[in-house]
Every structure is written in structure tokens, then in C-alpha cells.
Amino acid sequence: MIPEVKSHPPGAPEETRSEVVSSYLSAEVRISVRGLNFWYAGKQALFDNNLEVKTNKVTAIIGPSGCGKSTHIRVYNRIYKLYREQHAEGEVLLDGRSIMGEVDFIELRRKIGMIFQQPTPFPMSAFENVAYGLKLHYRMSKGELADRVEKAFRDAALWDEVKDKLDAPATALSGGQQQRLCIARALAVEPEVLLMDEPTSAIDPLATAKIEELIESLKRTYTLVIVTHNMQQAARISDFTAFFLEGRVIEYGITRQIFTNPSRKETENYITGRFG
């Protein structure tokens, strides 16, 4: 079943199709990947990945489970470096500068935030959760801290729901709220890119809708990369889509094109539900 795709990108005014396409293609590139290979303890998991993540757009990464989607984006913030047996090679540029090799992890991870499939509230109050990143990187007065925390909550569309419960443990929030808390926490340090690894697969549908709305508004300020196994979601919220299969980027392009007129057979098979 080919998912329904809106006739024009959500939120944008009526434009001709070719105008949309050309505006997409000329968008700035935030992250550029060329020839990325990855190994888990000697076993290769990613093969020669090439990809471009455009600024202020949502890039979705789809594919069957275990095909390397999460592995791929975990290279962007080099979180894989925590595990000695994981190893990556290739060219990955952020704003034109390489992030492989000798790089300041602190700054890289401040610029590239990550949201995980399960909400991961820290064992502290909601306020302290969001303040955590701020206190790591900055020295500021209590007043400033409170202001910035509030801003982060507002940007994550969570302020109204938590403003009376700021000091309660974060674990008291609902699943959807916890996930938005994690988003607020990531936003607090003013990143440029947000990586989201299946952000709504552990959340109920109502909360999912809220988070998808949030993603819509976030892309005005941030660049987002979202891994999802939900094709409808990818079609709904993303501007670009990359289809992964067995560690390779099979196809990559404007979402509408991928879903209505894929150029590779494998992509078509996946989208029409023949496997995955």
C-alpha cells in the first residue's frame, strides 16, 4: 500500500511542484557523508554509505529492522566511540568540517543532540533534567538557568504541562511527556542538529501526534534526522528520505519522490510492503 502523500509539503504555501523540488535541492547541506563503513567487532555493518542531510529539513531514514539505520546516525555524534569494539571509517562532514579523526567530542555532541527510542529521563527532577546539559557547558546565575530551562520546555511544547511539577521526579511524567522532556533537554544546549532514533515507537498514538507536530515546528530552527520503521510517519513528516537495506543506502531523495516514484526495485518492494 503506497502511503498517501500530501500534494505539497505540510505547512508550506501553495507552490508549483518544480519550485518545491528546486528549493529542496538547493538547500544547504549540514551533514555530508561519503563512503562510510562501520564494523561491530570485526563484522561489517555499514557499506559505503553516501548521504546528505540538508539544513532545516527533516530527513527520514527508513528500512527493515537491523539494516543499519541506527548504526548510521550514531556515527554523526560519534556515540559509538563509547564501545571499543565498534569502528567507523569514511568521510563525514559537519558544516564542511570532518568529524571523524581528532575532534572535540564535547562540542560535537553539544551541536548534535540525540533522542532515543525509549525516553531516558535522568533520576532527578524535570527541571534538573533539562538543566543538566546547561550546567555541564555553562556557568550562569540561577535566574538565567531558570529562563533557559523554561525556554527549552516551551520549545519542546511541554512548558504548560510541567510548569507546576518542575521539581517532581521526571519519572512521574507520562511516556510521551518524558520523551518531550528528553527533547527539551537536548534543545537546552542549543544544538544545530537533532538525531532521533525511532522517537515515537515506544509512545502512544496521541502523544506520537504531539511529537510529530513538534518536529514540524522544530525544523524551522534545527536540522532533524529521524530514524523510523513507520513508513507512514516518514511520509507525513519528512522532507527527504533515505532507504537503507542491509547496511547500504539503496536510495535517497525527496520524500514525495521516494514514495510515489522510487527508482530502485528494492525501495518499491519495501514501500509496497512486500517485505520488512
Binding site: 572535540d104 564535547i106 555541564l136 557547558h137 555553562y138 556557568r139 550562569m140 546565575s141
Partner: peptide, 11 residues
């Protein structure tokens, strides 16, 4: 608001 020294943290 001041940025904390990254070198101090890494140290």
C-alpha cells in the same frame, strides 16, 4: 553566562 572551560573538564 560564561562557557565552562572544555580543557578543564577534560582534564
Amino acid at each position: 553566562m560564561r562557557r565552562k572551560s572544555r580543557n578543564a573538564r577534560k582534564g
